[in-house]
Design a protein around this nucleic acid. Structure first.
Length: 431
RNA sequence: UGCCCCGUAGUUCAAUGGUAGAAUACCGCACUGUUAAUGCGUAGGUUGUUGGUUCGAGUCCAACCGGGGCAGCCA
């Protein structure tokens, strides 16, 4: 007898098989018991008929409690009455470990309780679906950049100084000197691009900002590609093809998860078509002013502004060339305008806001040196970075994408904390 | 960090300043196709902490503790 996974049940119709499962819920009557089961690959139900099994087994089945682990042995049937389409007619049950008082019941729970029990909440259907889509997006990311000829180039997590010098960093003691957890691998990726042409990093990123919003974590995962001999236009091409590729991969491999989340597939299909619309920062300001937003040229967009702009399009939209004062020192100044830089943010539709920030990078040694000084940063800390402009500087571009932000949008969750196994938030370091 | 909101049974929530209650989960019984199954029954509480006002505080006031939302920062 073969041991299988629930997800493969359809390949074993009318066969007797064994599956290792946990019990998620149960309903029983005098002569029939329905066991709701999960095994990590899918959810389905097992049916225990009193007439089919011994009295002892039927009584045992009726007494099973939520999250008991066991092997179930029985015959797979196709059955329209089952939500999954297939179910098991159980002949035998081998309990592995009994459980009592499992805290997470099929009823509603508050977010505080669920986050305190995240180690168990992971077993529930919604986290299951969201985190499987996370896995697919990660898999598709490696696949996409591999196919495009990128080298995965890992940036350090421990750093001796702040790459951008802006946001708050987590400080640690490093053999009696100061070190910080990385808030961006970008500057290191620029070094990688001059060694390998096209590179990307994909790893954890840390920001010690005391943010308490649905869009922020203190520990999150970021994908940061950097491309040598590439101007912003080609970078935008890669960005939109990458996003479209992720969406297509989720559509190709996660139909079951999307159905659990009740995510509309037709809406997602719109995002697989490129190119995405592009507007300039100047045009964005005009749009907002026409809509009576109280905003002047030079100001950054808040959440309401981003949402309004994104709602104008039924696809993600690039907003190009922001004021220089709003952006970090390493962005390339515009060739004919002194007030903007060559950059773009990609805003996700459906109210999800910024998911990518990117730019063409400044290539001139003296320009960068001045900007570093003007930003109040220590040029000595950036001497290695300045070397990249000293020895064979080339046009290059890159961008950063927040994994949890794109997942929040794809899964239609309302908070980024739902899209990472163990979220780290301002007031939450456990479990 | 600023502004706002919330802490009552394991959980989700009620309760004009006047004896703390329901649903659900657990436990027991009934029920042959359930989908948050259903019906009946048992049990379940130092109302976040400390102090104050009051004849009387879950309710009003203050401080503290814990959590959430929005904003800024950004991905």
């Amino acid at each position: 007898m073969q041991q299988i996974n629930i997800i493969d049940a359809k390949k074993h119709v009318d066969e007797k098989v064994k599956i290792g499962v946990w019990l998620t819920n149960k309903r029983s009557s005098g002569k029939i018991a329905f066991l709701q089961l999960r095994d990590g690959t899918a959810f389905f139900q097992g049916v225990v008929l009193k007439k089919n099994v011994s009295e002892e087994l039927f009584e045992e089945a009726k007494k099973l409690r939520q999250e008991t682990s066991m092997y179930v042995i029985g015959i797979i049937h196709k059955d329209e009455r089952s939500k999954f389409g297939y179910e098991m007619e159980i002949e035998d049950i081998q309990v592995i470990s009994e459980t009592e008082d499992y805290p997470i019941t099929p009823k509603e729970h508050g977010i505080e309780f669920l986050l305190d029990h995240r180690h168990l909440w992971l077993r529930s259907k919604r986290p299951f679906a969201v985190l499987r889509i996370r896995d697919e997006v990660i898999r598709a990311t490696y696949e996409f950049f591999g196919k495009e000829g990128f080298v995965k180039f890992d940036a350090p997590i421990l750093t001796g100084s702040a790459p951008e010098g802006t946001t708050e960093l987590f400080h640690i003691d490093y053999f009696d000197t100061n070190a910080y957890l990385s808030q961006s691998g970008q500057l290191y990726e620029e070094a990688g691009a001059e060694a390998f042409g096209k590179v990307y990093s994909f790893g954890p990123t840390f920001r010690a900002e005391k943010s308490k919003t649905r869009r922020h974590l203190t520990e999150f995962w970021m994908i940061e590609p950097e491309m040598a001999f590439m101007h912003q236009e080609e970078s935008l091409d890669i960005q939109e093809r990458y996003i479209a590729y992720l969406v297509q991969s989720v559509l190709d491999h996660c139909q079951y998860e999307l159905s659990i989340l009740d995510r509309d597939v037709e809406t997602l299909k719109r995002y697989t078509k490129v190119p995405y619309p592009r507007i300039s920062y100047d045009e964005a300001i005009e749009l907002l002013q026409k809509a009576d937003f109280d905003i002047k040229w030079g100001a950054d967009f808040g959440s309401p502004e981003e949402t309004y702009l994104a709602d104008h399009f039924d696809q993600p939209v690039f907003v190009l060339n922001y004021p220089k004062a709003l952006k970090p020192f390493y962005m390339k100044p515009h060739p004919t305008r002194d007030d903007v830089v060559i950059c773009a943010d990609l805003l996700a539709p459906e109210g999800y806001g910024e998911i990518i920030g990117g730019s063409e990078r400044a290539t001139d040694y003296n320009y960068l040196l001045e900007k570093i000084k003007a930003a109040g940063l220590d040029p000595k800390e950036y001497s290695w970075y300045l070397d990249l402009r000293k020895y064979g500087s080339v046009p290059h571009s890159g961008f950063g994408l927040g994994l949890e932000r794109i997942l929040t949008w794809l899964t239609l969750e309302d908070h980024v904390r739902e899209t990472i196994p163990f979220p780290r938030l301002l007031n939450r370091l456990h479990p």
